[in-house]
Design a protein around this nucleic acid. Sequence first.
DNA 1: ATGGCCTGCAACGCAGGA
Length: 254
Amino acid sequence: MRIATWNVNSLKVRLPHLLEWLARDVPDVVCLQETKTEDKSFPVAEIEAAGYSVVYSGQKTYNGVAILSRRPMSDVTAGIPGYADEQKRVLAATVDGVRIVCVYIPNGQSVESDKYRYKLDWLAALTTWLRAEIVAHPKLALLGDYNIAPADADVHDPAAWAGQVLCSDPERAAFRGLIDLGMSDSFRLFPQADRSFTWWDYRMQGFRRKLGLRIDHILLSAPLVATCTGCRIEVALRALERPSDHAPVIADLA
DNA sequence: ATGGCCTGCAACGCAGGA
């Protein structure tokens, strides 16, 4: 089973890239973030024509998540149970006995911002929920845009980013809190090139200059780690004309 | 040179992203 995550930064704009990539890489499950699409406008027909079932939870202008699957999905849930949030950031579904959890973790804006406090509160609620979810579904994969660079190796300029949003100690502690539920960062299960990133700033020719961060992740519970044969970043999609600022992350499970 | 770009919405600039 090939599972993937991609922040598309507007599904409407990125739909041609998405369809081309689905045809080429044929992932079995794809989690999308920042669809920025209301449910009534979701491009269901185009995605089904590509051979995928799809579920989605969106809103106007901001946020929005979706899960595409070549196999049937069951037990679809949106949001974090018991955590009131107007922002559409979480969607979960079960595919062939694997619990797929798609997340768009808040950005936080800056460590002084109210949005940063929201991010940390949100992460605490997510962790509490997943602690129970992983008991109910031992084969669990947490895929998405985490908006956290877990270590300095995931940052193009660690000194410049030290203590800044996406790299601050409380955010990294929250990431470790997810790991401590019994999950592993699939990307780090395998040897990887230095300066492996999943996001590059649109400004300053960030992609060409490799000014990036690794903030999109696939965490796997232990039973899935045992079956994971690889994890890579599909950098080619960031090099296209009019790209998303994020590249997909793809993990293969036996 | 501490900002540069992209998106959606709306409206002739803004918020938000990271």
